[in-house]
Amino acid sequence: MSIVFLIIIGAAAGFLATRFMKVETGVIQTIGVGIAGALIGGLLLRFLLSVFSAFAGLVGAVLGAMLLLYIWKSYTGR
């Protein structure tokens, strides 16, 4: 089922991409471009999400530590 879904999504993505870029291609080339674009875009998006999620984790850790230091400073009076 996932192969059929990939072909359908690839065909739609290829069709939209060729229309946005104003490129005339055949049906097979359109589907091929769509599937290849889906693979490249999916890998790129997955990579970016992993990088930004690691960065978000660092930001969250720093903010959490700052909150704990604020609370500690408030209760100790220093």
Rank of each mutant, 00 (worst) to 15 (best):
V27I: 13
I28N: 06
I35F: 15
L68D: 13
Q29I: 15
G37R: 05
R78D: 09
F15M: 06
L58W: 11
F5N: 08
I9S: 07
V51I: 13
V23I: 15
G41L: 14
Q29N: 12
I7G: 02
K22T: 13
L68T: 02
I35P: 03
T18S: 07
G10W: 02
G57A: 08
F5I: 15
A61T: 15
F52G: 05
Y70Q: 12
A61Y: 12
S53P: 03
T30P: 02
Q29A: 15
L48Y: 07
Y70C: 07
T18V: 14
A36K: 07
A36H: 01
F20L: 14
G37A: 09
F52W: 14
G14T: 00
A13R: 01
A54K: 13
E24I: 10
I71D: 07
I31H: 03
T18D: 07
G14F: 01
L6Y: 06
G60A: 12
V51P: 01
G42C: 09
I8R: 02
R46W: 13
V4S: 03
L45P: 00
F55R: 13
G14V: 01
F47L: 15
G37L: 11
G77A: 12
V4T: 06
G41P: 05
I35D: 02
I71A: 10
A56W: 00
L43P: 00
A54G: 03
G10D: 05
L58C: 02
S74Q: 05
G64Q: 09
Y75K: 14
A38K: 09
K73L: 09
G37N: 05
A12P: 00
M21H: 00
I8Y: 07
A12V: 15
A13C: 13
G57W: 03
G26M: 03
R19M: 15
T25M: 14
